[in-house]
Nucleic acid binder design. Structure first.
Lengths: 154, 154
DNA sequence: TCAGATCGTTGAACTACTTCAACTATCCAA
DNA sequence: TTGGATAGTTGAAGTAGTTCAACGATCTGA
């Protein structure tokens, strides 16, 4: 197909090492993008989640983001103070909070979206659309659910 | 019951978000693997680098790993104390250190290799060999070199 | 020989992330 | 009504990563 050099790197290159090397950098760039509004990357993540789902229980958000409860509290405090999200008690169970994104939150989240898109354009500048789609497909099938108990054997 | 919790991944999924989500987890697993000998993930990284190149100047290692000089010093101190690497002054320029991996270091590095391979097998269990190769190819073409000034134009 | 640069090193300050224990309010079931 | 569980909150401790300034040893060029 293309005349691309198949292996620019030396032969041994573990995929894991590639991920360790590039992953750190990609992560950095992505977190910068997530924090584009002066938010922390976590606040950005939470905002994106809320933008997707509109509203959800604090519990659900917590599990989706994989955060400690106490951490999420701080995140939501900040988002709420900035007027990007709101908490209100669930009338059906007053222990629970329902977290909802505000209009300002949606605006902020779309700014984050754009910043993410820009980083992607930058990171994946050498890939065409089809390849980016391919990459997305492959990555989405990576097993990141720790529900498999027998995974740390050597 | 938690009816909103389960289904999380869907529609909009930015590739960047995928990376932010999965990347953190992949990174965690990989770093666990890198630290399999009781080393820190950084020591593991350094060891892998040394195993690839055999020996290199401390300066070169520093740039390859993207570390602050002071950080590398600590890493090498530990590796040397464990007998996994050795520093000696470069006779051609006595300011410089030449870092060389030891036999024990090679053994340790191959343990890291195996652990990495295991993590990969686990993470990419749902991909066949061809797809893993594809993923490696795509990832290796991600732009992670920030030294290119003309890459952030849009 | 001297001045300035380079290499590795030390130490400290600073930030961010993680984890945990304890507490309040609320729900649910016996 | 009461005891135990759950949701969210607070605060603190511990860990790890980053950055920076300063220093001694050494090289290089004038």
């Amino acid at each position: 197909m293309r005349d691309m050099a198949e292996d620019v790197h030396s032969g041994t290159d573990r995929l894991g090492l590639l991920l360790a090397r590039h992953g750190v950098i990609m992560n950095l760039r992505i977190r910068e993008a997530l924090g584009v509004n002066g938010l922390t990357s976590r606040q950005g993540m939470a905002l994106m989640h809320l933008a997707e789902t509109g509203r959800m229980s604090q519990q659900a958000l917590l599990e989706a983001l994989g955060l400690d409860p106490s951490v999420l509290v701080a995140v939501l405090n900040d988002l709420e103070r900035e007027g990007l999200a709101e908490r209100r008690r669930d009338p059906a169970d007053r222990r629970r909070h329902i977290v909802e994104i505000t209009a300002a939150g949606r605006r902020a989240s779309s700014v984050v979206e754009d910043a993410l898109a820009a980083v992607e354009r930058d990171l994946f500048a050498d890939l065409d659309d089809e390849q980016v789609a391919q990459l997305r497909g492959l990555l989405s099938r990576v097993r990141t659910t720790p529900d498999d108990p027998a995974c740390t054997e050597a």
